[in-house]
């Protein structure tokens, strides 16, 4: 089966800092890959490379059959990749000048050429799916953090992506709102969405992930099934990271 993401020998630098080192990673359709690691380990940078929000210096990256070239090359496939890859950000990044519904309708209309009524219909279905249909005409800032993040998920889903990237989707949320966002993500995984998730929610990772990847210092140090990584980490860095995060 063809992979949705294929990263081979990928290297990325921020100036002199070698933030991603020789990354090899493939994601199969329907797979949920959770990336864990300390802050500054490069895990967010890793998934931001997948939709070209970060450029990389060398190696190869193929997303849904489209090759993304290293920095400096002509990025003619970028648009094609971004149409197929949804992203959910830590800070939601909803468009504050648009209503909740218009946030969800914007990309299908601008990118897919959907009519206003088509876009509105599917926006309402998606908002209903994430439990926000009754807030459709409100401004994003009238919503709680958890509701905003669910709108952001609906907005990404409106493009009918083949892959969803989640960059610490619950890190900016008050604790009581984390559950509602994870529920939506869990549901999405169940429906077969291919997902790459950067998170500190180890319970979610253990339950939902097909594969867990631990990154340290820009390298993939350990990867495997959640039960193996969490219960029998092989690498001592993974052991010490997990003992720190799982203790409390």
């Amino acid at each position: 089966m063809q992979h949705i993401v294929d990263m081979t020998n990928l290297d990325k630098y921020f100036g002199d800092l070698h933030v991603l080192q020789d990354i090899n990673l493939s994601v199969s359709p329907g797979e949920v890959v959770v990336v864990i690691g300390a802050s500054g380990s490069g895990k967010s940078t890793l998934i931001r490379c997948v939709n070209g929000l970060e450029e990389f210096e060398s190696g190869s990256l193929v997303v849904d059959g489209h090759e993304l070239a290293p920095k400096g090359a002509n990025q003619q496939n970028l648009q094609n990749i971004r149409k197929e890859v949804g992203m959910v950000f830590q800070q939601f990044n909803l468009f504050p000048h648009l209503s909740v519904k218009d946030n969800v309708m914007l990309a299908p209309m601008k990118v897919r050429g959907a009519s206003r009524s088509e876009a509105a219909d599917s926006a309402m279905k998606l908002l209903d799916r994430v439990g926000i249909a009754n807030q459709a005409d409100k401004s994003p800032k009238q919503l709680s953090g958890g509701q905003q993040q669910r709108v952001a998920i609906a907005r990404a889903l409106a493009m009918e992506p083949r892959l969803m990237l989640f960059d610490e989707p619950t890190s900016a949320l008050d604790p009581e709102m984390i559950g509602e966002v994870l529920d939506v993500m869990r549901e999405l995984a169940k429906e077969g969405m291919t997902m790459m998730v950067v998170t500190h929610e180890m319970g979610f990772a253990r339950e939902v992930a097909d594969r867990v990847i631990y990154i340290h210092g820009g390298r993939i140090v350990e990867e495997g099934k959640p039960a193996d990584v969490f219960d029998h980490p092989q690498n001592e860095r993974t052991q010490s990271f997990l003992s720190r995060v799982l203790k409390h």
């Binding site: 070209g52 929000l53 648009q79 914007l106 990309a107 990118v111 907005r155 990404a156 990237l165």
Partner: peptide, 21 residues
């Protein structure tokens, strides 16, 4: 905030579309 243009680009909008809308 740069997150606004990242959100637009990640949805597949072009740079121009992201800027003007």
């Amino acid at each position: 905030d740069s997150g606004q243009s990242e959100a637009g680009l990640s949805l597949g909008l072009t740079r121009n579309q992201t800027f003007w809308s």
